[in-house]
Simulated assay, not measured.
Amino acid sequence: MANEPNKTTPTDADVDAFLAAVEHPVRRRDARRLVELMTRVTGEQPQMWGPSIVGFGSYHYEYASGRQGDAIAAGFSPRKAATTVYLADGTESHADLLAGLGPHTTGASCLYIKDLDAIDLGVLEEAVRRSYAAVTSR
């Protein structure tokens, strides 16, 4: 695991209401597109995790120290500066793919995208597919 999984937990909040309330029009548009993409890729329905993460499925992690928990297997958050796409197995696992993605930046397990129209959605879909498979097959 690239870093500590997000400690947010699933909620019963309405995903559609959350998406409708996203202020930035590009983030709102991209969020709706990501719901479609991630639902198709994972076969999971979207669920709010905490106040601002849309998650698809979950996986259980356990460290050698004994620390364990559950985290989203795939997900995103439409933030003000960019949409954050979470690749649970870490962005380094997808460096080959991400080289052809288009404009983006990365963190340990976060992919920051300002506009889905500016990237190769096929590359993003494959990265999400690989990441989801990696964490749910454990």
Results as ranks from 00 to 15, higher is better:
Ala17Thr: 10
Gly122Ser: 10
Ala133Pro: 08
Val26Asn: 05
Ser109Asp: 12
Gly100Cys: 12
Ala99Lys: 13
Ser77Ala: 15
Asp96Phe: 01
Met38Ser: 03
Glu126Met: 00
Arg32Trp: 13
Glu125Ser: 11
Ala118Glu: 14
Val128Tyr: 01
Asp96Lys: 14
Ser131Ala: 05
Glu62Ser: 15
Gln47Thr: 14
Tyr112Ala: 03
Gly102Ala: 05
Ala88Glu: 04
Glu62Gly: 15
Gln68Cys: 12
Arg29Glu: 09
Thr83Trp: 02
Ala88Leu: 08
Glu23Tyr: 09
Arg40Phe: 07
Val26His: 07
Glu36Lys: 15
Val26Met: 08
Ser137Trp: 03
Arg130Tyr: 07
Val41Gly: 02
Gly107Thr: 11
Pro78Arg: 09
Tyr61Lys: 02
Thr105Val: 02
Phe76Ser: 04
Asp14Trp: 06
Met1Phe: 11
Asp96Met: 09
Ala17Asn: 11
Tyr112Lys: 05
Ala17Met: 07
Val26Trp: 05
Ser93Glu: 13
Tyr86Trp: 13
Pro5His: 07
Leu97Pro: 00
Ser109Arg: 14
Asp115Thr: 01
Met48Lys: 10
Ala134Arg: 13
Ala81Asp: 12
Arg27Gln: 13
Asp115Trp: 08
Asp14Leu: 03
Gly75Leu: 05
Ser65Phe: 02
Glu23Ile: 13
Val128Ala: 10
Asp30Asn: 11
Thr91Leu: 00
Phe56Gly: 12
Asp70Gly: 08
Val26Phe: 12
Pro51Gln: 09
His104Arg: 01
Val15Ser: 09
Pro5Thr: 01
Ala99Ser: 14
Val22Ile: 12
Phe18Asn: 05
Val22Phe: 03
Ser137Gly: 02
Arg129Lys: 14
Ala2Ile: 09
Asp117His: 03
Leu124Cys: 03
Asp30Gln: 11
Asn6Phe: 10
Asp89Thr: 04
Asn3Tyr: 13
Tyr59Ile: 00
Val85Leu: 07
Asp96Asn: 09
Thr136Phe: 02
Val135Asn: 12
Asp16Gly: 11
Glu44Asn: 15
Gln68Asn: 15
Gly69Arg: 08
Ala88Pro: 09
Ala64Pro: 10
Ala31Ser: 13
Ala2Val: 10
Gly122Arg: 13
Gly66Val: 01
Val22Asp: 00
Asp70Thr: 00
Val41Asn: 11
Gly75Asn: 02
Tyr132Met: 07
Pro25Val: 07
